[in-house]
């Protein structure tokens, strides 16, 4: 039995096993922290930065990704301060500009309240969240995929771009990929914000910090759905 520690997220005191990550602790307790690259049961990578929170230590505040933040006793976290919301909106805006043709990312944008995109739309097919790589590596022990290259040339690749014998064709890499869910109106011909979730967005404005198992969470494969053992794609 691991030692339990108490952390404070948005004023709520949460009891969680020591060393578990803050994102999962908050989601278990019903606090909504939007997330994209996190897959329960797989090592957090902190690639997408959507789950950004503010940690308050000795009166200082700093922004950090909550999925790679280990819970320690007495930790104070702000998940919905003005600072965090601004940073999160900006991060999602960048994701949206990178790959608008994904329901996961469109839903994230709706959830955090992105209404315009100030960056040029790139219309890419990958946001380098590393979900496929980690699931392949850790759950299936296959190590067929990897994030290869540095900086702008970073990409998900197979060794020598050939499917290795280790690959069991389980297709889990495709199932966890946020890019495989098309936006509700179908694939976008023009990259844009689809913004068809008005019914959801009003709720988002009223209760930004409470997880209500929203439909948007299904879209972005929110870890909350998976933690509850529900199929996020149903």
């Amino acid at each position: 039995m691991p030692r339990m520690v108490t952390i404070t997220v948005d004023g709520a005191r949460i009891l969680t096993p020591e060393g578990s990550n803050v994102l999962e602790a908050a989601l278990e307790a019903g606090i909504c922290i939007p997330n994209l690259c996190h897959v329960p049961g797989v090592t957090p990578l902190g690639a997408c930065r959507v789950c950004v929170v503010e940690i308050i230590e000795n009166g200082r505040r700093r922004l950090t990704a909550s999925c790679t933040l280990e819970a320690r006793d007495g930790m104070v976290i702000e998940a919905h301060s003005e600072n965090v919301m601004r940073a999160r909106r900006n991060i999602v805006e960048l994701l949206l500009a990178e790959a608008p043709n994904s329901r996961a990312i469109q839903d994230l944008a709706a959830r955090v309240g992105v209404t315009e995109c100030r960056y040029p739309m790139r219309n890419n097919t990958c946001v380098l969240c590393g979900r496929c790589v980690r699931v392949c590596d850790e759950i299936w022990q296959s190590k067929s995929l990897g994030l290869v290259g540095r900086g702008p040339s970073r990409r998900v690749a197979l060794p020598f771009d050939v499917r290795p014998d280790l690959c069991k064709r389980c297709n889990n890499c495709i199932q966890v990929c946020p890019m495989t869910i098309t936006p509700c109106p179908g694939p976008l011909t023009e990259p844009a914000i689809c913004a068809r979730c008005e019914s959801q967005t009003s709720m988002v404005e009223n209760i930004p910090d409470t997880c209500v198992m929203c439909e948007l969470g299904r879209g972005f494969q929110c870890a909350r759905w998976q933690l509850k053992g529900l199929d996020a794609r149903a």
Binding site: K143, S144, L145, G146, L147, V148, G149, R150, A157, L158, P159, F160, P164, L166
Partner: peptide
């Protein structure tokens, strides 16, 4: 060493 790790190092 998994081939993908070798490939990553060679690319990095």
């Amino acid at each position: 060493v998994p081939l993908i790790e070798v490939f990553r190092l060679a690319n990095f």
